[in-house]
């Protein structure tokens, strides 16, 4: 009996090792590209479509790992991912300055929206972004309005911090005030919370539209115009000098994203929501379509370029040019 148990235990361990080596071998034979991405982009479903196309057309398995921008950058630093899809310029710049990221390309943009309850207690409907933020803070201090922040240093949160600054507030100060709430959660959770509390919040269009269409939230878009609200998505490839062995595949993916990928992007979500979730950025940059070109340049460029020279790495070999 004791012997049988020992044999069983050994068999289990042998099988486990077998499974491990089988899986490792299988992965070696597959072409796998790992890309860490911001959640708001992932949750639109756009990347599911991209992964499907890559598998079908090129036999490449693109593994998208959804995280906040900060965590996605961390992934790349730890050698987990071969490229990142993000939307927080300051962090991207830092990532490249530290030598981790190269060949940044802006591939899409859309607009953040300030959403809130229909009755709009702070009367921000139609205001400019800066005025809207001021009015919300004012109404908040009078006890008439609530603001919900994600407080998770995600791209959306970083944008929010910048908007408060533009309106003359210090995020670190006002986050202590009573009308200012933080969820520390994703966009969906934050929208649900804001809806429950009849509060204002900043959202990306994609998440807002999906929750709105599903009837999960009772919030309206109150401010959606204004260059400050532009949301610029870029791809950064991890530097091969920092150990990225998949650089070649990552560059081919980047190339696809700024060429064929632009058409996929253009059509995505149009049937679902009656409006596109993203706008292709490459043609705007190429043809300098105004006013978007200036807006992207202002909010998405680093030192006057989407990717300053010192952060470029053998991109011409892949036929990629930078603006």
């Amino acid at each position: 009996m004791a012997r049988k148990i020992v044999i069983l235990a050994l068999a289990i361990l042998v099988i486990t090792f077998g499974l491990y080596f089988y899986e490792q071998n299988k992965r070696k034979e597959l072409k796998i590209l790992t890309i860490s991405t911001t959640t708001s982009l992932y949750d639109t479903g756009f990347l599911d479509e991209v992964a499907r196309i890559f598998k079908e057309k090129y036999g490449i398995e693109v593994h998208f790992i959804a995280k906040g921008t900060g965590a996605a950058i961390n992934d790349a630093k730890l050698g987990v991912s071969d490229a990142i899809l993000v939307h927080a310029k300051s962090k991207e710049e830092e990532f490249m300055r530290e030598g981790y990221g190269v060949n940044r390309k802006i591939f899409a943009y859309n607009f953040f929206v300030i959403v809130g309850p229909k009755d709009d207690p702070a009367k921000i409907r139609g205001s400019s972004v800066v005025d809207a933020m001021k009015k919300i803070a004012e109404a908040g201090r009078e006890g008439k309005a609530i603001w919900v922040s994600r407080g998770d240093l995600s791209g959306t949160n970083v944008k929010e911090i910048a908007l408060w600054k533009a309106a003359g507030f210090d995020y670190e100060e006002i986050r202590k005030e009573k009308w200012f709430r933080e969820t520390g959660a994703g966009m969906g959770q934050t929208l649900l919370y804001a809806s429950n509390e009849k509060a204002y919040t900043l959202s990306d269009t994609g998440t807002y539209l999906r929750f709105k269409r599903a009837g999960k939230i009772d919030l309206e878009i109150l401010v959606d115009r204004g260059e400050e609200l532009i949301n610029v998505y870029s791809i950064i490839v991890v530097n091969p000098e920092k150990g990225n062995e998949n650089f070649d595949l990552a560059m081919k993916f980047e190339k696809w994203l700024v060429t064929d990928g632009q058409e996929v992007l253009r059509g995505f979500g149009r049937d679902e929501f009656g409006m596109p979730l993203f706008y292709p950025a490459v043609e705007v940059l190429e043809k300098k379509i105004e006013p978007y070109y200036s807006w992207i340049a202002k909010y998405g460029f680093i030192n006057g370029s989407e990717c300053p020279k010192e952060y470029r790495y053998r991109a011409e070999e892949y036929g990629i040019a930078f603006w």
């Binding site: 796998i32 599911d48 992964a51 890559f54 598998k55 398995e61 593994h63 790992i65």
Partner: peptide, 11 residues
Amino acid sequence: GGNVFVYGGLA
């Protein structure tokens, strides 16, 4: 795990 999913994917 990373919640990786590719339609028809093997990993």
